[in-house]
Amino acid sequence: MRLELNNLCQSFGDGPLFTIEHLQLSSGDAVHLHGPNGAGKSTLMKIMAGLQKPTSGQVELTPTAKESVLQQAVIYLHQHTYLFDMDVRSNVEYGLRIRREKSPQKVNQALLWAGLEHMQFRQAHVLSGGERQRLALARALVLDPALILLDEPTSNLDAESVARIEQMLQDLHRRGTGFVLSCHQDNALTKLCNQHWLLASGTLTVQA
């Protein structure tokens, strides 16, 4: 799978927020997206996930370019994960229920992978910050996405939780799922990345 951004322009108010002539991302890529506050990192990720329409330009998924397919192949995780007001297991099942797919085995595997199997019937809102991020990743994993876009996934997490998320991302990458990680500073997660994108002053620079 390949995600391509062509002649993308996003405005904010009267002026342009950023412009990107061409950008390409494959499912095996691991990208660290960084830049100053307000540069448009979250907006860019939402555009890539099909959650927001750019002011102009195209986001194309190869081989398919339908918006609904884009939303299922590329999953965006908010900086502060939103969990539905249901138990942990039902949160993981959400995407499958939307697809009218019943796969308890897949759900069990995802819960086990995230280390949440022992609390699967607990209400999601009582989880700690680290557990919430793990649940968000498990909820994405069951849908076999090609790309996961993580917006500041380590903010307010302790070192142990960051290490756990790091293991999970490594594992996802081994399975062939690409990811884009938006982080202000270098940390354990950014070391997993093989590409670094800097979004600043309205332009995106791909760094070595």
Binding site: K46, L51, S68, I75, H78, Y82, F84, Y94, G95, I98
Partner: peptide
């Protein structure tokens, strides 16, 4: 506001 975005990114119409 994240309810709709989360639902959509998980494939909801």
């Amino acid at each position: 506001h994240r309810v709709l975005e989360t639902a959509k990114t998980l494939g909801a119409s």
